[in-house]
Amino acid sequence: MSEYQRVLIYGEILEGKLASITKELLGIGRKLADELGQMLYAVIIGSGIPAELAQECVYFGADKVYVIDDPLFKDYLTDSYTAAMEKLTRDLKPDIVLFGQTSMGRDLAPRLAYRLNTGVTLDCIELVIDSETKLMYQTKPVYGGKAYAIYVCQTKPQIVSIRPKTMSPIERDTSRKGEVITFALNINATAIGGKVVERIKEEITRIKLEDADVVVCGGRGVGEDGFQLLEELALSLNGVVGATRPPCDNGWVQAQYQIGLTGKVVAPRLYIGVALSGASQHLSGMMGSKNIVAINTDPEASIFRAAHYGVVGNYRKVISAFIEKCKEEVTS
């Protein structure tokens, strides 16, 4: 039997709570561990980690949680975090290590993999264990999502990152039992390349784009002066405005609101795509939406192939009338 015998997930904290990606990782991690007959481990790295978070990991499926809490880890730095993960994975010898495809995961997973001399696949949307080889088959969208590739890693550990909102957490269960272990490291702080000088938070909306129930997304066809109308629409539906890449590149919308392969991943109950063509790289960030509405002057636009409801027409006229109708409905 191989000496590599556990599934390890990399847990992230967001505003003092377990990030939703962490629950998703615990969900898929639990499934893989059960299929392999292995234990599920989680690791949380940071400084001043709220004590209850390790227990939360247990409630969401972990058997053992490693907490690495040190002022050294106040800010994420590639060097220090990679060193911590290297130490832990060399000790634990996991079969599989799962990260989220987040600003941390997409940076940390590859550096760790190269340090351990193993392979890595980023941004996976499906993971299954092959019944014969017991290796993990990794499905990853490629060519901006126009094709899917299935990869397998022949060295251990098998390291991947997972696209947010593609895996389901398991039910939180407070009767679950697990062990919490404080893991101390001797990392030479002077060997760390670089330091964080400051952190600037740029997000300003009432509701986080990723958590919004309704997302109104504008494309290049909206034009600089059109986003005001989209804000109005979003406000009437209690939603948030996002954008494709061109409006962000043009400075009409802040880059934090870009949706897609290299932006945010959203999966709202209702997504309304306005004057955007539906490029695969954009679809990568919204395909999980439950109901998709598209408004475009071009009936051939790709977005109509992904949409449930569509209107062909100039968005300014369509949306103004839409908002009017909504008001009418409410007052009558």
């Binding site: 998709i292 598209a294 109509f304 992904a306 409801y309 209107v311 369509v318 839409f322 009017e324 409905e329």
Partner: peptide, 20 residues
């Protein structure tokens, strides 16, 4: 996914129909 196109004589009418 199969798209249901919501129509109207004018874009305004289509917009109102979409709301409905």
């Amino acid at each position: 996914a199969r798209c249901e196109f919501v129509e109207g004589e004018t874009p305004e009418e289509a917009g109102a129909n979409l709301a409905l």
